[in-house]
Design a protein around this nucleic acid. Structure first.
Lengths: 215, 215, 215, 215
DNA sequence: TATGAATGAGTGTTCATTCAT
DNA sequence: TATGAATGAACACTCATTCAT
């Protein structure tokens, strides 16, 4: 990833205050800052992260940071744009999740990709879920991205004939909640279990709980 | 709740630096501060909450706060002690969750109580789950409380013959993750669904996904 | 000592804001506060001492303190009055310090009494010497007391024919400086030497340095 | 002096939290802060000095202060390092103090240099002697520096055959006490006497009292 | 394009003093 | 006479942001 400086013109996120055109060196610096943001936010969480930490991680200076981002939130926004894009792609790849073994495989595959995405964009997703963002616009990106995935999963549930859940909305909400928080636990090593086990267990549970699995 | 000033001697949490004897007025003020803490933390989250907000909410002064708590963290600790106690009680009440309708009823009842507890102590639980606490001791309280519930639920799963989950630990982790985050979504009105629907849906899903429900 | 509550009417120091006449219980409380002041000031120094410490030491309450003293400084003033009185008495007892053995004995005796006084009133004297007092009046007490002793010692020097010191004023200043600070070192156990040795050494040195000792 | 930013690497005192490389401007600011510290501490004493006073004196901002020192104590530490160094140098220069006129001249010269050092570093020395420092490490610097001078003077006393003082330790203690406190009195203009007179008087007295002077 | 330096509003905490009972 | 409770001004320290080079 890390191509937000390409989409900068469209989104006005992660755009240097004055300059638009970035040369090689500029792109390199910005990329380093984005990466550092991801890294520092992951360690401390967005709120507790200091611009100072980011700058040190990116081996650049305070002044330089504000050459590329108007403030700390702007860095988050840039990352959020990338993350939302990634999640949108992810939503598109969710194939039919049938009640049989094939459905379970599809589900497992999706869960794996979600976990992977969380591994990279976890801090952004956390900021969304933990309500750390003070700005509508960024929040909206998250809501939109999660809604896209949730809607798709909801549709797949209905296709699977999983009518037992009283409320689709509640079911989808519960599923997304579990996905997000458990991914956090796994990605942050709060829960230490190898990925295979995690995915096996999770797909089984979700398949049975939400997708009417038969076996 | 709000009786931490009773258990103060045992726990030394939420106790004025020098173990003062509190009279009626003092107990009243302390109780107001605890309540205000819960309220403010719920609105803004622990980290973003200012001592100033808490004292304004409690209609008292800045100085008074430090008469009862050594610092902001100490207030959190006091609340955490209460919360942990509540959760411990909750863990004890989780009866057998069989695969039949009775089991589902038991599960639903537990989920309802959990949600209720979350409604009161949500901010404390959030602080635990979102890793906002800088202190081991407080964290330990949370880990212990959640472990107690998780262990109990895990035992109930095994009793229900729900052997399909590859890893008990992963399953319990996923369940707790869903419980915590979905309760947050519901309690904070980020997801707006009436409690009955939430509980119906959740108990069905969890019953099927984790407790081998037959129907 | 501790009779400042008797002289209260004359000095208006250490006098309760409203009441003048103290009954037995009142005198007892005030005395406890004075003693506590001495004790706490000695440990932490006047400036660093908290009213809270004094009150705790005197096993009484915050409110009570302000029943007897208008503020922290007022407590110091009360002690300063006592101390000044003591030092004045001390000044009167300084007999002729001749250049012979008898003079040295007289000197030693004075030094012993000074050290004793320092043991009790050290913190007050420190406050004077370290310029911790923000109030003219209290300062004046100290200056007056020290001047009285210094004058007397100066006279004894001249009587001893110790004309070698170029400036009487400077000599007296140096002597008082040594007395005060060395007493502090000894009384506070920063320098750990038994009193006999201290007095032997000091009297010898001072006798030779300031009083033209022959032997 | 004021070269603590040079010795920063060795001592880690007075160094910005994160070891920054200081350019000309930075060094200039730091030097201004050190100078201001000396100035303000001298006026009010270390304890009573406010960081605010220091930055006002240095004509800089509150935030800037914390760019160079982690806290008020750290500023004191930086000054203490410089002061200790200066005193160590001073100790090395104390030549033999014989009982004759030459010895008196040597003594007078030392006293002059001590007074000069006190004029600059008085507040630091005061902080040491008045026990205002809450930190072992800084204290140790002072003890070490004073011990070095005291040891040297003690040796010179013994060389001078001044065996009359019962206890070397007590004699040295008394001498250092006098030096410190009288220097304070002179440097702070509490005692107003011109330097020549002070030095003449002091050297005579000390020579006779401690160094067995013959004349 | 890069950087070290400077800033000041915001926040946590202490403590002398006053108040109500 | 005694006391626990309350207060708020004063101070230390942080950190996002701006500035000058």
């Amino acid at each position: 990833m890390g191509e937000s400086y390409k989409s900068a013109n469209d989104e006005t996120a992660g755009t240097p205050a004055r300059q638009r055109e970035l040369r090689a060196q500029g792109r390199e610096t910005m990329s380093r800052l984005l990466e550092a943001g991801l890294c520092v936010f992951a360690e401390r969480g967005y709120h507790a992260s200091r611009v100072d930490d980011v700058v040190r991680e990116a081996r650049t200076s305070h002044g330089t940071f504000y050459l590329y981002f108007t403030n700390k939130e702007d860095l988050l926004r840039a990352l959020a744009v990338d993350c939302a894009q990634e999640l949108a792609k992810l939503a598109d790849t969710i194939g039919p999740i049938t009640s049989d073994a094939a459905g379970r495989a599809e589900l497992r595959s999706f869960l794996g990709r979600f976990l992977e995405t969380y591994r990279r964009y976890g801090p952004v997703i956390r900021a969304w879920m933990e309500d750390q963002v003070g700005e509508r616009e960024i929040d909206r990106l998250g809501v939109k991205a999660f809604t896209a995935i949730g809607d798709r999963l909801g549709r797949r549930m209905r296709e699977a004939g999983s009518a037992l859940a009283v409320s689709d909305e509640a079911a989808v909400g519960a599923l997304m909640a579990m996905l997000e928080r458990f991914s956090y636990a796994v990605a942050s090593r709060r829960v230490v279990i190898d990925d295979e086990t995690v995915l096996d267990t999770l797909s089984t549970i979700v398949h049975r709980g939400f997708f009417n699995a038969r076996f």
